[in-house]
């Protein structure tokens, strides 16, 4: 059954498609935070499984790369495992769970706790790339808003949050302004991770498959979370300690550990948690 080397070009996509995606990536890096349209391909997995991220990863991968795939911070969820297996099979690249050893990291919902380095690429899977979509469903209109920097509407959303909940309750996909110009949706990462995007040494690439958009944040780029003067942005986390490694500064998941419904807090970044234990 495994005659895969014969059936697929390296990393599944044909070279023509990779060139098209790389052109979009270069454009995206040149205009930080700007959504570049690209001709998204059918991938052998459903849309909700990160086809945008997979295509970006496929266009970036070289034979010497070491790939790490995480979903909600963990390397061993179904989604992460299946994407990692996919690239092992169609690209034959080495894979790792160790954040520091990876050259390309594809992620859904988290940015690793360990500070990334200049020789790493972080690829985000993005379901909805347009941060203004919630209040303005017309794509023609949101494009004009980006072009003319008409971003008042983004604050209307935060205003609504405060007036309904007494605070900015947006906890995921918290909007940011990139390089003092474009407003960007950081994909559904928790807002706890937003500060990690600011002046990050690694390249950050975002792929939305269904919506056919690619955007990027080049290394060492200013990424600021939107807020009000009197309701400043807070990178909040559960005020708890990881019950596995004792970390007090990480993003925690609350997990049920037995059939009695006992709950436990532990690092959502499983590789980081393991490295702290030992």
């Amino acid at each position: 059954m495994s005659n895969s080397e014969e059936d697929f070009n390296f990393a599944y996509l044909d070279e023509q498609t990779k060139r098209m995606i790389r052109r979009a990536l270069i454009k995206a890096i040149c205009i930080p935070g700007y959504q570049v349209p690209f001709a998204s391909r059918e991938m052998p997995m459903p849309y909700g499984w990160g086809t945008g991220g997979v295509q970006v990863t496929a266009a970036c991968l070289q034979e010497t790369d070491v790939l790490k795939v995480i979903d909600q911070g963990s390397d061993d969820t179904t989604n992460a495992v299946s994407i990692r297996k996919f690239f092992e099979r169609v690209a034959g690249v080495k894979t790792t769970e160790n954040t520091g050893k990876a050259s390309v990291i594809q992620t859904r919902h988290r940015i690793p706790e360990q500070v990334l380095s200049e020789d790493q690429i972080l690829v985000y899977q993005v379901p909805i790339p347009e941060p203004l979509r919630f209040l303005e469903p017309r794509e023609t209109e949101t494009r004009v808003m980006h072009a003319l920097e008409e971003y008042g509407l983004m604050h209307v959303k935060l205003y609504e949050d405060i007036s309904i909940n007494g605070e900015i309750s947006t906890a995921y996909a918290y909007p940011v302004k990139v390089n003092d110009r474009y407003i960007m949706d950081p994909s559904p990462t928790p807002k706890f991770d937003n500060p990690k995007m600011n002046f990050c040494p690694a390249i950050q690439l975002f792929g939305a498959g269904r919506e056919q958009r690619i955007y990027a944040v080049p290394p060492y780029t200013k990424v600021i979370s939107l807020d009000f003067e009197d309701y400043p942005f807070e990178a909040s986390r559960a005020e708890k300690t990881c019950e596995i490694c004792g970390a007090t500064n990480t993003y925690l998941d609350e997990v049920v550990i037995d059939d009695k419904g006992t709950r436990m807090f532990s690092c959502s970044d499983s590789d980081y948690c393991n490295s702290q234990k030992s």
Partner: peptide
Amino acid sequence: LRMAVSAGGNIGERLMAIGYRNYSQIR
């Protein structure tokens, strides 16, 4: 009007559009 946005959000939109960034003042 934006029907999915509160009355206050509707009224405040133009202020936010011209750069108001203080929630209490907008309100």
